[in-house]
Amino acid sequence: MKTIIIEDVPSDLLITKHYLAEYFPQVKVVAEAGLISEAIPIIIREKPQLLIMDIEIIDGTSYDLLDQLQKAGVVIDFEVIFMTGHHKFEYATRGFSYSAIDFLAKPIDLKLFIKAVQKAIDHHRPLENAKQIQLLLNILRSEGPATQLAVSLIGGSGTIQFVNINEILYLKADDTMTIFHLENKVTLRSNKPLGHFVQFLQNDPRFSSVSNSLFVNAEQVLRFSSQEQVLTMRNGDLLKMSRRVGQDFKKNIIQSPKNAEKEGTLLRFLKNFFTKGSA
């Protein structure tokens, strides 16, 4: 398997190469690069099957690399293993969660590394892979909230389904899995726990947790009875909210930018005028 490693930290490069040599003799590192500018011609020339790269390199990020590759007309049909020393919740890395792309955190845990490389070897799905990368790049390029979400479905081989986020009604925890309730009565079953989605989707103002097992798109709520603590969704589903909703959900709805727009220009002006006056 033709592999290229893009890494500007020598020790990390050594460790990666060491692990590959030790555990995956079939993986053949054909080139190494320490700069994005260096890497692009190499990739175009070598046409690797696997790319292992650090996200932050001196002259750019791996997204820049992919972006430039795309612009250069290269089809990203190869497997990519991202590595980063950064924590998961930085904005850029959140894109990985949306596009269901795994990445390895440094220092590299050998077990996770083996798993990731093994997966790349086993599940070579160039088309799906390209789509996921496309989604990642889209998310990174656009400034607004992500519109699409890649959901890895249950069922062994880890099929990826792309979902329009605004079509999501709500997410329901089912033990360690998550059921996606979408518009038109479509349901998806993901192999990731609900907490996984909540982690990054909760930063989307549309979404809020109404109980430990329910995560709701507020735009798809038809009615909200704060007395009975029941939400009626657009598709007619009734969702029982837990007590915390009183604070969280309500607040979320009020703060949702869409609702703020509904207040109207005049009201907002007055509100601003008077609140500023009082401040």
Binding site: L194, V198, N212, S213
Partner: peptide
């Protein structure tokens, strides 16, 4: 850990 509890969902 209580088996009823799903730590991946509780926050």
């Amino acid at each position: 850990i209580d088996p009823k509890l799903n730590p991946d969902n509780n926050r």
